[in-house]
């Protein structure tokens, strides 16, 4: 099968492109998202939240190419057999591409690895999410924004999950750039309109040394169920994920943005919905 733009062999089906034209198409789409939604301004330095996986590595590479001023920030949760492997890939990548890398660990910051925390029967994704967001926000403060590797699949899943759970406030998180609220660092998502499959193909074609494996704890999550259902629907109705996001953004334009109430944690001074933030509540429960 030939590329729709030249006589080379196609390596991707929708759109039908050869290696060169697929890479051009993908980079153009990411750069257009950055420009359209003004994700970066020329003076600021961007923190890229990195895991060593394909999505965040692609964002790191493309922001370095487009914007230059980037620093990689990784959280080592302490997931044996997974994170230790992806961090090796990330260290190699940053060294090769001359990018500063900062790593913060659950063990050093909270006294336990995620593996140890879960011995107390906590739900893995909830514990991990609370601590990861806490550290990202804390250590990205002072920089312009945090860029994450969230792609079209992640975001369309999040929209559906929040609708199904009635988390209306959280719908404002599924956007290319979050609003500025308190001392939360704004988040940007340059891969917002790129499917997971496109990002994987880009990482593979660029020769990034990244793992394609998923986190060992993700198997039982609600997200997994939504992802499978959405993938099955996408197979029969191509364009479903993109449509969800386009309509979601249109809908948000018609709704007044209201910040849900927050204060500052009386223990650590980070933003919190209650007197003590979720991270400090969890730390207390481990003692």
């Amino acid at each position: 099968m030939k590329c729709s733009k030249c006589s080379e062999k196609a390596v991707f089906l929708v759109p039908k492109f050869c290696k060169k034209h697929f890479i051009d198409y993908f980079e153009k789409k990411v750069f257009e998202t950055i420009k359209k939604f003004s994700l970066v301004n020329p003076k600021e330095k961007i923190v890229v939240a990195c895991s060593g996986g394909k999505d965040s590595t692609a964002v790191l590479y493309l922001l370095k190419k487009f914007h230059k001023k980037v620093v990689a920030l990784a959280i080592d949760e302490g997931i044996f057999g997974y994170r230790n492997k992806t961090l090796i890939d990330l260290k190699k990548f940053c060294s090769k591409n001359n990018i500063e890398l900062r790593i913060y660990s659950f063990e050093k910051e909270f006294g336990k690895t995620l593996d140890e925390m879960l011995k107390q029967k906590q739900h893995p994704c909830s514990v991990c999410g609370i601590f990861r967001r806490y550290l990202m926000n804390k250590y990205a403060r002072g920089f312009g924004k945090i860029a994450t590797g969230h792609n079209m699949d992640d975001e369309s899943q999040a929209v559906l999950m929040n609708l199904m759970k009635g988390n209306v406030d959280l719908l404002w998180h599924s956007v290319p750039m979050t609003k500025k609220v308190g001392n939360f660092v704004q988040r940007i998502k340059p891969l917002y309109f790129c499917s997971e499959k496109e990002v994987a193909a880009y990482a593979l074609l660029k020769g990034f040394e990244v793992s394609f494996n998923e986190c060992l704890y993700i198997k039982d999550s609600f997200r997994n169920q939504v992802r499978d259902a959405l993938n099955n629907y996408e197979l029969e109705n191509s364009g479903t994920k993109l449509n969800i996001l386009k309509k979601h953004l249109l809908m948000l334009e018609k709704i007044k943005f209201e910040t849900s109430f927050f204060q500052y944690c009386s223990v650590c001074d980070e933003p919190a919905k209650e007197d003590i933030c979720k991270a400090c509540q969890l730390i207390k429960s481990f003692k």
């Binding site: 196609a10 390596v11 997971e196 793992s211 394609f212």
Partner: peptide
Amino acid sequence: GSLVTEEDSVNDDDSIKILNVISGG
């Protein structure tokens, strides 16, 4: 060893690798 599309054909002499594209987290 090369990325191919789902519309490509394979036969018994080929070696195939199926990579999961799901995000790691």
